[in-house]
Design a protein around this nucleic acid. Structure first.
Lengths: 217, 217
DNA sequence: GTCTATAGATTGATAGAC
DNA sequence: GTCTATCAATCTATAGAC
């Protein structure tokens, strides 16, 4: 008898659904995407969604969790490393380094694995999705890492009133979010500027921008 | 005989539908909002939408045009005034003034008339709406004013490579868009910072932020 | 686990009386 | 211009055979 059930197909189906859903949710939006579109493109049966995930909403949650939990772990490690270093040296952390610790893994993530580009675009838009379902799931996963970012920035800029720091962070996150869903960057606005669209190029422009804004006098 | 048909009810109905649609599109999203929700809240008949506008898509277009055309006129006037002044004096315009000419009317518009707050939130999100219908209508109306803004900024920062200027403008617009749909500002993120949420306060924080980012060395 | 078939609800749009 | 009534198309979710 077999030691373990092969279940080759089972795992494939679940991953295929996740991949296809991620793509559609990012490119068309959650409510506009039908389960038929997802399963049709994935080549699996419609009923498989409810068998494996339970509902469309639970599928969205699984799409978020699959990539956001590991990404948040990376960002958390980098931020905590910066805090520890600052405590060791008895100096405040540099604003640029703090912002970089959050932004760099986020944008680099786009190239880390196939499909991640769609995911990043999805995340960029979820900040302001009008749909309660999307925002609720997203903020549950993203909330804690934002708090850590805020606190680390407060260490870097202790002279800044908390209220001002809070809003400047919002502005910076707005710039980041706007950059994140420019993945397919020729999709928006006029042509001729697709050059600086690579990750390295974007990082070298975005980080100085938000650092200067955050430190504005 | 009457000089003119009174048609009191006709105008009311059309406006009532526009007001209600604006509110729902901003708060729930275009595709999630049903015509039944719009007409139900407005207290008008469902069939009135197709009578007055022709389709749901045409209704969205009318919602955009009603407020965006006058708003764009204000922004255009201010930007052209700055260009003219710079030519007169033979000096380049100041980056801060250019950004202010675009941002200030936008944020102030929120308080100009009832319903404008919803509209501003709708516009802020339309930059990155995954829905082709929404984005296409929006960019058709917003494209020309963006080009003018870009060109005026190029006058202010002629030493900046065009590609870099282009992306910094994107970052600034991202920060602005993110601010625009924070209208109901306690809707997002933790509490305790609803203080600086008024228009004057936001302007006094956002404009220095984007100016510093734009002029970063 | 995978599939077909369908229930049950909701949608945008329209025809036609008034 | 306004209304009722309804069509035709969609959707999510599920029951039940294999």
């Amino acid at each position: 008898m077999k030691v373990k059930k092969p279940k080759t197909r089972q795992k494939d189906t679940k991953q295929l659904i996740l991949d296809s859903a991620e793509r559609f949710f990012a490119r068309e939006g959650f409510h506009v995407t039908s389960l038929r579109a997802i399963t049709g493109a994935a080549g699996v049966n419609l009923a498989a969604v409810n068998y494996h995930f339970g509902s469309k909403e639970a599928l969205l949650e699984a799409v978020f969790e699959r990539r956001l939990i590991p990404l948040n772990q990376v960002r958390r490690d980098k931020l905590e490393q910066i805090r520890d270093e600052a405590v060791e040296k008895g100096k405040r952390p540099s604003t640029k380094k703090v912002l970089q610790a959050f932004i760099e893994p986020t944008l680099r993530f786009k190239e880390s694995e196939p499909g991640a580009e769609d995911f990043i675009a999805l995340v960029g838009r979820s900040f302001t999705d009008p749909d309660d379902t999307v925002r609720k799931i997203f903020f549950r996963l993203i909330g804690p890492i934002f708090e850590l970012l805020f606190e680390t920035l407060r260490d870097a800029l202790p002279e800044l009133p908390e209220n001002l720091l809070y809003w400047r962070l919002h502005f910076a996150l707005g710039a980041l979010a706007h950059t994140m869903h420019m993945s397919g960057c020729d999709k928006f606005l006029p042509v001729g500027f697709s050059d600086g669209c690579g990750t390295e190029s974007l990082l070298s422009m975005l980080i100085p921008f938000v650092t200067a804004g955050m430190e504005a006098t």
